[in-house]
Amino acid sequence: MFRLFFISIFSLFSQLAYSKKSVFMPPEASVYARDADQLYSFILNVSAVAFVLIILIIAYFGIKYRRKTLNDKTPNMSHNFALEVVWTIIPALIFFFMFGWGWKLWNQARHSPNGALEIFAEGQKWSWSFNYKSGRTSTNVVYVPVNKPVKFILSSKDVIHSLFLPAFRKKQDAVPGRYTSLWIQPNKEGEYYIFCAEFCGTGHSEMIAKLKVVSFKEYAKWLSNDPYKGLSLSAIGKKTFKTSCVACHSSDSTRKIGPGFGGLWGSTKQFTNNKSALVDETYIRESILNPNAKIVKGFPKGVMPTFKGQLSEKQIRGLVEYIKDLKE
């Protein structure tokens, strides 16, 4: 424990000493990120100087005016109008300068340029799904071309989520019942994290997606790609499982939010209404499209979202095949 502690302190200082990027911040992947970091650095420097001054002055007074005798005389300094005006106005000026600078960048950040590439992004417990205008959909991964403005139009299927792109210094809540948006213009190819930043329940910290910034050519190729080309149904199912179901189901028999799928096929399930059924194709299909029709005993109702309209027929068939293969 203590070793880890010291290594950590050391790594912190070495990070500080050798980093060229803004102190503590992740790499910058857009012009806006650079601009926001400049403001960040400004506030950081002002704060650091102010803080050090405050502490030094207190320390100096503490040493210099330490009590000498019990009957020390102290002056009757009750106020000083000029001094007080000065130290009210100076911080005020600095604060409003920060406000103005922040406002300027905020305006840039909130107004996407015309012609931005629009992608619908929907949060649900606990994954992000993306919908391109071409009809292409993807889950927990989104490809965008470098140096082009991209606008995410956010919504949520259940509770509030928040799309957070640290490398772009931006986030925006995805709120059920309305659309919000967030735009970026990546200037570096690479892979970046998308976190969910608004607490959304048990799987909140697993709700992580990837933003892949690629060349336009690669992007176009990805867009027209059939992601399942040449794959067996079961392999399609596995892929779909990994993106859409794994937050709540395991591929063996361990319980997560929902039951594990290992050994599910062909078993007989008990439901909360005391009925039971054999697990077959129809049952699995119904569980995916209309999950509240039958609730497995010992599990909560209303937690599993419907995937109606979100998964294609091919994916559903794939899932059925995949589940057939899973042993306990």
Binding site: S47, M98, G102, W106
Partner: peptide
């Protein structure tokens, strides 16, 4: 320290990063 770091959160564009 608490007050000064509040400035990062009160300023619009830096809060976009630090919020939550």
């Amino acid at each position: 320290i608490g007050g000064l770091t509040g400035l990062f959160l009160a300023t619009l564009s830096t809060d976009m990063h630090f919020h939550d």
